[in-house]
Design a protein around this nucleic acid. Structure first.
Lengths: 239, 239
DNA sequence: TAGTGGTCTAGACCACGAA
DNA sequence: TCGTGGTCTAGACCACTAA
């Protein structure tokens, strides 16, 4: 690349060192030693503080791990904290075959609660999609979702997909983050019927509000059979 | 505290500076200026790199924000993704006064399940701590925790704290991440009695396994009153 | 122009781990 | 013992912001 020289930033030394090391260790097995700090000092003709600045960034990033007295090594990949998936992906991660049966799919006018959650005005068009969901053929949950129709023109006409999140992704609207509210409750008569559980059974209720950047795309309420579904949450940042 | 000098670590300068600044800015409104780096250099008689190391930590932590050419300021709180807190902090974040009543606190031998979760051998010593927990005086949950006794010598004798996580933090054992399993169930007779709910009420069950780096410190099972407690989970990338 | 953070130097001593 | 990362010094020049 010889073009665009004018745009190229002056190459900061710690960035040079950082990217050099990144190329060296990226994809390497956890435990592989990285060059020692003093090696890099010699190699780049730079002060040790500069090398440390470069390595610090990679450590914070989670790529490297320091072991005092021993050296610096490729870290084992960090656990993903709070991956954001929909039901379909969640089931697949559990090794179950996801299935869905649409109970209702239509255009509606948003009520006040849904409007607030979607950050639109009451009466604006929303897509209401209610499904009975299975894993390996067994009833797992009822999901009742509302989508912002403005963001999804022609969604209902395009034939409903199995995975909402895949469909959103295809439109560049894959949620980037979400808030779940989780609680417990007794099943309603309708829920008990649909989920095929005795009346007065406990269900796990999850209300989700999913956003793309700052724009709410989906709000949903799900009722899970607790005997067949446990929600896993990973918390924390490091390690 | 003049005792236990032998245990006190040599006070690292960058830690001194960091904690000094933390006290200055903690709780301050976003945008409040922090002391400039050169001010701190003069005040503590240390090199600027040392001050930068201290400030770097607070920036990574999300407490401060640098603005080149202008200064360093209190950052607006980041959207916390999956913050890892114990009950006490959780209640405080909700604006409720946390209270606890110890139902049981004793040394026990680990059963097979607890041993596996804590990554110790069955029969090894654990601290079993069962509490009834309130928020603003109202019954919220029953928490049944097991701690690895080896990591917490003299814990039971030192007088039980209100906040387990604060106590762990004071010993350098603040959990860095945790796995929660969340489900729904009907209350047992004992739970219904303790939580003062009708029999056959639904409760929210949360099983937690909390680790410091790779070492499990705490495993617990909690049963929440769903009418007074909703669990909030934030998922996905930052923002 | 004065002050800020961003980068960088060329050393130093320490505690720790492995041989 | 030797090499590692952890800490620390006492400066320096730069680009940027605000007065």
């Amino acid at each position: 690349m010889t073009q665009a020289v004018g745009i190229v930033q002056r190459a900061l030394k710690h960035v040079q060192v950082r990217e050099h090391v990144r190329l060296l260790v990226e994809g390497a097995d956890p435990g592989t030693p990285a060059p020692s700090e003093r090696e890099l000092v010699a190699q780049f003709g730079v002060a040790r503080m500069t090398v440390r600045q470069a390595m610090d960034a990679l450590v914070v990033e989670g790529l490297l791990e320091r072991m005092p007295g021993r050296g610096t090594f490729v870290a084992r990949p960090r656990r993903r904290v709070g991956a954001l998936t929909g039901y379909t992906e969640d089931m697949r991660q559990r090794g179950l075959l996801p299935e869905s049966q649409t109970l209702l799919a239509r255009r509606e006018q948003a009520g006040p609660g849904v409007a607030r959650a979607l950050d639109i005005s009451p009466g604006d068009a929303v897509i209401h999609w209610k499904r009975l969901r299975r894993g390996n053929g067994q009833l797992i949950c009822i999901e009742d979702a509302y989508l912002n129709e403005v963001l999804l023109p022609g969604f209902l006409q395009s034939g409903m997909p199995t995975s909402l999140y895949s469909a959103l992704e295809a439109r560049g609207l894959r949620p980037t983050w979400a808030e779940d509210s989780v609680t417990s409750d007794l099943a309603t008569a309708e829920e008990a019927d649909l989920l095929d559980v005795p009346k007065a059974s406990a269900v796990l209720r999850v209300a989700r509000r999913a956003l793309v950047d700052q724009r709410p795309v989906e709000v949903s309420r799900s009722a899970y059979r607790p005997d067949r579904f446990t929600m896993y949450v990973q918390l924390g940042s490091n390690a």
